[in-house]
């Protein structure tokens, strides 16, 4: 028996709408990767998938599995927690690498680096 069969119709509709909303935001974010112009703009787009996209997907999972199995499926919430904690690290690494390269190549107007001699460490503990 599949998960969908275990759900009453109203719950199946609710879960379906939530999944579609989440997929929609993730899709718009991916579309942004194609449409936006340069690296710094493109890096903004996928955060749609990691915020509201993830939120609706997690909500769909919690609702669907809780209703189908008859006990709360709150462990899915951890996906949201860990994604929120780890996304900034990846994005920061990508953007800092791009900024470093652009400063060296000096093609565009980039904000200047910190004056030499002073530290410029990553702020993450």
């Amino acid at each position: 028996m599949s998960l969908v069969d275990a759900l009453p119709p109203w719950a199946a509709v609710l879960v379906g709408v939530l999944v579609l909303l989440g997929a929609g935001f993730a899709c718009v974010g991916s579309l942004g990767l194609l449409r936006l112009r340069d690296f710094y703009q493109r890096v903004h787009a996928p955060t749609l998938g990691s915020t509201l996209g993830t939120f609706f997907m997690v909500a769909a999972c919690v609702a669907g599995f809780s209703l189908a199995q008859g006990r709360p499926a709150l462990q899915v919430l951890l996906i949201g927690v860990f994604l929120t904690l780890t996304t900034p690290i990846t994005l920061m690494l990508l953007v800092r690498a791009a900024l470093y390269r652009d400063r060296v190549e000096d093609g565009q107007q980039m904000p200047p680096p910190a004056p030499p001699g002073e530290s410029s460490q990553n702020p993450m503990p």
């Binding site: 890096v43 955060t47 915020t51 994005l91 953007v95 900024l99 702020p123």
Partner: peptide
């Protein structure tokens, strides 16, 4: 970072 449209670049 988790607010789309703004990214932390450097501190």
């Amino acid at each position: 970072t988790s607010t789309p449209g703004t990214i932390w670049v450097d501190h």
